Computed example of a mutant assay.
Amino acid sequence: MKHLILLVTVVFSFSCSSPFHKKETADSRDTVATKRITLLFAGDFMQHQKQIDAAATDSGYDYQDCFSQVKEEVSKADVAIGNLEVTLGGEPYGGYPGFSAPDEYMYAIKDAGFDVMTLANNHCLDRGRAGLERTIHVLDSLKVPHVGTYLNTEERESKNPLLIQKNGFRIALLNYTYGTNCLKVCKPNVVNYIDRNEILRDIKKARAKNPDVIIACMHWGTEYQSAPDAEQTDLANWLFAHGVNHVIGSHPHVVQPMEMRYDRINKQRHILVYSLGNYLSDMSEMKTDGGVMFKMEICKDTTVRVEKCGYSLVWTSRPKHSGEKNYKIIPASSPREELPFWAANRLKLFVKDSRMLFATHNKEIKEYAF
């Protein structure tokens, strides 16, 4: 790497409407040793009491079946990133409002193919200092990189932003939350809150690492609202103006629109996902029982660019209506005839509502099936 520090310009070769399942057509860039990396983002990993009860076994807890229908797709990605919106705070385990999930939950998440977890969210302090620190220790023991909460300022200084190095790429990952449900972080622990001065310092620090792209995962927005609020839009504009390439959002517990933006001054295109929705939860109100997985393939030769991107809808099936023991993430493309009537109907409603929202408000970002 050269000593000259700059943010690499990201150039899109074509619209992100290109689906992933189609074969690529070779172009002249392939002769210049094109490097590729696929990133996948999933929304809120929740763990309500009914989920904990459903996963209980005679010897502990088993969550493997929850991810059985998405594991193959997640594992295809070079780097899969999820928002762990619970603590691994130890016993007594519990759901809302003080989330603490069994360690087996994280074991299953890793086994499903997830590589990195974002931790800065409004539930990261649900079990206080002990819960925050134990969560970090469990992830470290599993060798799962994480970003957003830290044992102390020294750890934050050395690990923030998180630099992901794979396939010849350097991806700088940032993560911030709007708050922690009025719970105060206890020293020496650190939580990345949305503070523009702090974020600006982190962006400058990220640039010094000479990244190919900088991605900010933001825990923001208004719960249960399908449209982004003014603060989200303003902050997204600010992040892009100060050097962030892509912004991926969580927290509202419903999906929100996605955009591909073009910056004519810097000749850059930016991906903006306002909310990925819920990935796995016991939320049952309309629009809260599912979410999306968002995938982008970044290529690098003479330029760095997003070659393809898109979203895939997923929905959570609950034991009460599926007749199965555990909760399970169901892809939108799953055959409806394999589901009980109630489950098939709720899946249909979630997919219909989400597709209508995206068809109306998405900008150049399409759905893909797996």
Rank of each mutant, 00 (worst) to 15 (best):
F67C: 00
Y105H: 03
H242P: 13
F341W: 10
F341T: 14
W220T: 02
K320Q: 07
A227P: 02
L183K: 14
H251P: 00
K320M: 06
G43H: 08
A206S: 13
F341S: 11
A172N: 01
R305G: 15
G131F: 14
S250L: 09
V11G: 09
R261T: 11
L272E: 01
I265R: 05
S158C: 07
D58A: 14
D229S: 10
G43F: 09
E85L: 10
K143M: 09
Y262L: 12
I203F: 10
L239S: 00
D44C: 07
Q49W: 03
N181Q: 05
S354Y: 13
V11W: 08
D301V: 08
C217A: 11
Y61W: 04
Q47V: 11
I37S: 04
E155I: 06
N121R: 05
C182Y: 15
I248K: 00
E297F: 04
H137A: 15
E154P: 00
Y176L: 08
L119Y: 04
K110N: 12
L239H: 00
C124K: 03
P92Y: 08
L125I: 12
H242V: 12
I171L: 05
H146Q: 02
E364Q: 07
P331M: 02
P102N: 11
S18K: 15
S284T: 12
D78H: 11
T135L: 07
V304H: 08
A80C: 03
V304S: 08
K295P: 03
T316A: 09
N181H: 07
E73V: 13
N122C: 10
F294S: 03
D78C: 09
G95V: 02
G290Q: 02
A227I: 10
T57A: 06
Q69E: 11
D111G: 12
P92A: 03
T316S: 06
W342L: 14
I136S: 10
D103L: 07
N278W: 07
Q49K: 02
F240I: 15
S75I: 01
G148E: 04
E297L: 05
N210T: 06
Q256R: 00
P102L: 10
Q49C: 01
L276Y: 01
Y193F: 15
E24T: 12
S354C: 13
S284I: 10
D353C: 03
R29I: 01
P228A: 14
E297H: 05
D126S: 13
L174E: 05
S226R: 15
M117R: 02
C186A: 13
H361W: 15
N121V: 09
K23C: 08
L119R: 04
M356P: 00
T87K: 02
S322V: 10
L40H: 02
G60P: 07
G291V: 10
P211Q: 10
Y93I: 02
D212A: 05
H146V: 04
E259C: 04
S281C: 11
A120K: 07
L276A: 03
N362C: 11
A112L: 01
V292F: 06
H246V: 07
I265C: 03
Y274S: 01
E198N: 03
Y279P: 01
I5S: 14
Y61L: 01
C182R: 13
V138T: 12
S333I: 11
A56C: 06
K287E: 12
N152E: 08
T233L: 14
N362T: 10
K159M: 09
Y96Q: 09
Q51D: 03
V190R: 04
Y63V: 07
C66H: 06
P252K: 00
G243N: 12
K308V: 06
V32K: 14
Y262D: 03
T153I: 06
D353W: 04
